[in-house]
Design a binder for these strands. Structure first.
Lengths: 216, 216
DNA sequence: CGTTTTTTCGACTTGAGAGTCAAATTAGCA
DNA sequence: TGCTAATTTGACTCTCAAGTCGAAAAAACG
């Protein structure tokens, strides 16, 4: 990736395109080395730009992290499935598949694995509020499942914590060059986790060599 | 906690006791603020000691992190259940309970949630080797379960990744002052995750308000 | 072209934290 | 008590990275 990775040539949205690339690169670097372990020079080098240039786009390093958090929160919210024709369990499964893909995919802004103490109090407040909103939406999906009988009776908050934990952790061990594709991982994770919450007879998931492949 | 927290008064093992306290305090600080986000002064302050004193006990900051990793690896290894009278699923469940308790308990050395790039190549090699050993032992438990029919056919490596992911993530959201006890969390996590892997009719787990409580 | 506006950068200041060391303090023990 | 070894510390250096700024380069535009 060099020089903003030639992000097209629009006059007006140039800036927001560059910002998006910057956030993705920063998030990826933060994920790898941690917030404090990543210098702005690291990020500038990846973009083929000088450190001073970055300050034309972001207020400071802390704000850069904050922006990553905000972008990631929006990205996460989009993964929630609310299709009313599906039961709670299937909505949860689809949400998880989408979520895992979003956080380990090429376009991830995810910075959930980072220590949160790097943000200011006010920034942290906002981020936590947004994250809570996401988690509450997922909890609602679980509650729907409990009500419609597809999900076992449980504490939705705890269930979401567990399920998101396994999902978020994927960013720690997933290697793009590894044997498993992103889609495989997402499907298998969702299948395993949903099975842990499923109430009745388990729905049959698509065949997957990581999990859920029922043939001998 | 002040001044080595009066760790008894043995002549010879004084040092190792102090080291143990130091590692626990350091690990807790690292978990909270990340490796780079934690200064040795932070740690020294918690111990009620000057920064220079720490250098009497550890070679440098990086080595301190390394020692935490080593201690955590040993701690993790001890959580694996190998009771031959139990089937694989139950062994896995007990292992998970013990593991979760070990990482969020008072005596945790756990630093798994940290970025690994802070270690030297050689240190990282050792840590990864130790962690692999632990994960392989857990994979063996899963394999045992698949063989004895208690666990669904699956990729043991992936299963262990998922299960440990959810477990490790607990360190992110668990609050000692929260409503859930460590034991409750450990039991519920293990129950949920094992259910996701269980093959046949699910064993009944002890009642738990977070998960597995089957009564209406 | 020349002029203006946007974008980039080199060179700088600054602060924080890692790591050192000789001196001071404390503990062990005769 | 005095002597010795173990332990602790204040004061120091040094490096690295955040953040600034005025000038240079590059677009935009007439």
């Amino acid at each position: 990736m060099a020089r903003w990775n030639k992000s097209v040539l629009n006059p007006e949205q140039q800036r927001s395109l560059k910002l998006e690339v910057l956030y993705k690169v920063a998030a990826a670097a933060f994920r790898r080395n941690g917030y404090h372990g990543t210098s702005l020079i690291d990020i500038a080098d990846i973009l083929g730009v000088s450190k001073a240039t970055l300050y034309y786009y972001v207020k400071n390093k802390q704000d850069l992290l904050f922006q990553c958090h905000l972008a990631a929160a929006d990205q996460a919210l989009e993964t929630i499935c609310t299709d009313p024709s599906l039961n709670g369990l299937e909505r949860l499964r689809r949400s998880l598949v989408a979520y895992v893909i979003s956080i380990i995919g090429e376009d991830s802004f995810s910075v959930v694995i980072l220590e949160e103490r790097s943000l200011s109090d006010e920034q942290l407040r906002v981020v936590i509020e947004k994250r809570d909103a996401f988690e509450r939406r997922l909890q609602d999906v679980v509650r729907t499942g409990v009500t419609d009988g597809s999900i076992l009776r449980c504490d939705p908050k705890f269930a979401v914590f567990s399920v998101l934990g396994a999902a978020n952790w994927v960013t720690k061990w997933h290697r793009p060059e590894g044997a498993w594709t992103i889609d495989e991982i997402a499907q298998a994770s969702a299948a395993l986790l949903c099975r842990g919450l499923a109430a009745g007879p388990l729905p049959s998931y698509p065949s997957n060599r990581l999990y859920g492949d029922q043939q001998p």
